[in-house]
Design a protein around this nucleic acid. Structure first.
Lengths: 230, 230
DNA sequence: GTTACACTGTCGCCAATTTGACAATCTTTA
DNA sequence: TAAAGATTGTCAAATTGGCGACAGTGTAAC
């Protein structure tokens, strides 16, 4: 990964891109690269944080384990996504587990460097206040839009969430494919594999999605969005 | 409401109480009082924000209307609770509706005054960054802990949430009574009044809670917490 | 006080969902 | 390539939960 590629990662973020170029370059100078192999853990819930991450390649699974020991996946994060900023800002433990689902390349902005940046340049605070507010709005949305939906509605909402990402709005949409097993999907909406299988195939017959082995592709996004109303 | 009472409201908040006394007094000087009658609306989702609130008396219902037109209640807020800070910090519309469920007295800290405070004193930013992070952590918890629970588990979780408050941690616990109809509770966990009624009475027979007209009292908090594992 | 309204308790029926089971298909690993 | 493991498709039986109905009880308003 060369410098221009790294700069691009910063420019891709709605908040970091507000920083003057020389500040970005300062952050890049102290940032580190990290490569995770498939299945490797990045951090666990409760870990203390070393910094904030951006994915330059690969896929990270953000999840935690519920009281029955079942893994509940919050979301997957992919190229260009920044994450892990909460613990960086408040110095408290990680809220989730993060695993690499495939070989992944990450950029790490160290916590101390970032905190020093803010300390030395308090006028940058508002950018990151807004960044945090945005996170809150997204999670509120998740809570609100899930409540009151039928199972089919929840499934549709979840599929959209999985392609668009739980992360910050305004991303240019990539492929509309989701690599996920029906069992994982079932876990996410607190349902059974069999029911999810039935519902997915119903959507498949209506040509709204295409169901494959370990893979779902969204064909008709409008229809899917309409289903989120039920 | 006299000055010392208002000062107490500021001291009650984990973040505001970090501000020097003269700053608090400055904020109090520009704050306004507002009285809402029962049923009156404080703001609606989408409204632009005038500031941040604290309840000195009464009860505020935070909710929104889902796509089927059903009201989904996120939480109730009571004495001493600060809320409405998101829109104040990011200048974006309100995320929820807020209604007074009974005659309520509010303190309003105007947005402009607060923004000026931060502009003039950037070293206060970190307090409020942490405040926002705390909100994110609480909402993540709500999402994570609800997922994978049985209906009974969700109900137990919700009851605990309602006495402890969805708001920031570290509040000294008041009475363990919740004034709420079983129908409202049902809405909150996306279930039916009848089912909630049955579950509540089961908990009542086990002496975990006490069920009354429009009122639920938690008797055995430990047992209730244990139920959040199923 | 009494009338209207809101809330609770409890049916029974019916639809939706879970669960366990098993076979078929796809992918990965040895 | 073959074997092992993961994922999907499908059934039937058992369970859960939603919904309408209606009576009983508590609260508020006039």
């Amino acid at each position: 990964m060369d410098i221009s590629e790294i700069e691009h990662l910063f420019k891709h973020n709605n908040w970091l891109d507000q920083l003057p170029l020389h500040v970005i370059q300062g952050l890049i100078a102290v940032s580190k690269l990290k490569v995770l192999n498939k299945g490797q853990i990045l951090y666990a819930k409760g870990d203390s944080a070393d910094g904030m991450y951006c994915i330059s390649k690969g896929k990270i699974r953000v999840s935690n384990v519920n009281s029955q020991g079942k893994e509940m996946v919050l979301t997957w994060l992919e190229n260009g996504i920044w994450f892990g900023e909460i613990s960086m800002f408040d110095n408290l433990p990680r809220t989730h587990d993060a695993h690499a689902d495939e070989k992944s390349h990450l950029l790490i902005v160290p916590k101390l460097a970032f905190q020093k940046l803010l300390q030395d340049n308090p006028h940058f605070y508002p950018y990151f206040m807004r960044m945090l507010c945005q996170r809150i709005r997204v999670t509120f949305n998740l809570i609100d839009e899930t409540g009151g939906l039928s199972l089919l509605g929840q499934l549709a909402r979840r599929l959209i969430l999985l392609v668009n990402g739980l992360h910050n709005a305004g991303q240019h949409q990539k492929t509309k494919q989701i690599g996920i097993s029906q069992e994982s999907l079932a876990h996410m909406i607190n349902s059974s594999r069999q029911t999810v299988n039935k519902l997915l195939n119903q959507l498949g017959q209506k040509n709204i999605i295409k169901v494959d082995y370990g893979m779902i592709e969204i064909i008709n996004m409008q229809e899917l969005e309409a289903l989120c109303e039920i």
